[in-house]
Every structure is written in C-alpha cells, then in structure tokens.
Design a protein around this nucleic acid. Structure first.
Lengths: 106, 106
DNA sequence: CTTATCGTTCGATAATCATCGAACAGTGGG
DNA sequence: CCCACTGTTCGATGATTATCGAACGATAAG
C-alpha cells in the first residue's frame, strides 16, 4: 500500500510525556532527534549513527519518534522531510527538549 | 540472600541520559519519581498509583529507577528510604528533572 | 528467643519491542 | 512509458522487559 503517503501524527494535545521519553530513551533515536535541532532534514540525509542501517530499521525508528510526537514526517518530492516538533513539545513540556538535547537555545 | 542491604547505585558521572529517560518512560515509575519531589519517603509510604501492587513488582520499579540513577534506595530501620537524586541529575542534565516532573522549582 | 514485618531476589511466564529481508507503491528522470 | 529510487508495511525471529508468587534474610517488637 504505502510508498510516499501522509502518515498519521498525534495532535499537540495528544502527545504523551511517557511516550516522548520512551522514544528518546534509545541512543539511535536520540541521535536522530539531535540531528534535527538545526532544522528539517531529508531522511536520506539523516545518518544518525550507523550509515548502513537497514531501511526498514531506520523507518521503524522514525515511526516511533513520529507516533510519540517528537518528529514530523512529511512527503517531500520523492523523499521524506523530517522535522522536530519543537513548538508542540515546548508548549506541552516546557524546557524538556532543551534539557534532553542539551541545547540552551537562549 | 538480601533483606535490608546496601544496594548498588551508579555514580553521578555514570548516569546515562537514555537510561534516565527509559526509567521515567513508564507511568508508574514516573509517578513514583513525582512523589519524591517533596522529599524522601519510606517505601511503604510510597503508593504510586495502585495501592495493592505486588511487592515484587514494586521492588522491580525501584530497581529500574535506582539503576538508572533517578533515585537512591537506602536502608532505614526495617524499611527503605527512597530519595530523588535531584542534585546529581541537575548537575548532569540541567533542567531535565524540572521539565519532566513539571516543577518550576523557581 | 520468637514472631511479625519489610523488601529483595529468584524463577517462570507473558507481553512488548527490536531487527531485518522482502514485497510494494508513489515519485521523478530519461 | 518505463525504470530507478525512496521509504513504508508485512512477517518472522530473537531479545528485552514486565509481572507476580514464593522463598529468604534482616530488623524490630513483644
């Protein structure tokens, strides 16, 4: 069924703290989130740690992060654009993202 | 073997962010951490959510939190004193605990 | 000393999660 | 139009984690 398709994202109000924490409790997934701090990235450009990670595994990481409300995953041409949901997370859990990602943001 | 015994705790420098996040990614464990914000508590006085939770399950929660470095679990008479490791966590991951526990601390 | 209480450990079972190959579907280029 | 490319889904397997009864040790109280 799916190739480049709109995937479901939780609304801001539906984001659960425990799910966010769980999503970020894996080193690989945390690394992905960190990469998105400086702005959106195409999935192909997002290497996290292991460069030759199987596609399906990588896609699964994105699913966990997306379903938790940490990132947005949208069609972008033939690829996918990954965006950190900073505003939503900041509104829901002030200071959390900065603390986790080690960003002072000022 | 063990009844009231000294249990191993990670040192401040050994505390891993991903383990802390994982420990707090469970609603029950998160509730326990929140209960300790106002100060140490005897384990028996710490009801989290379910009051008639089996002892072994409760003990397991404490183990996860302790091994992650979130709480300290020390002998206290016949019971056990649970303490949130605020200073250690604040030193290692500034702002994290406040954000997670929803405390502004001021 | 004997007994009741507290909480950890052990062991077994169930549930959840991770990993990855294969198949598939949109997209854009030739 | 056809093909190469990207990334999701499915399905199977293995690894972690959760749950809880039972047994044990240590302490405090009587």
């Amino acid at each position: 069924m799916p190739g480049v398709v709109d995937l479901p994202h939780p609304e801001r109000s539906e984001i659960q703290l425990t799910e966010v924490l769980f999503a970020l409790s894996d080193p690989e997934r945390l690394a992905i989130a960190r990469q998105l701090v400086d702005g959106p990235l195409d999935m192909a450009a997002c290497h996290a740690t292991d460069p030759n990670l199987p596609k399906s595994t990588k896609s699964h990481f994105m699913k966990v992060l997306r379903e938790a409300g940490v990132i947005r995953n949208e069609p972008h041409g033939r690829q996918r654009l990954l965006t950190l949901r900073r505003d939503d997370l900041e509104a829901r859990f002030p200071g959390l993202l900065d603390a986790v990602l080690g960003v002072t943001t000022a």
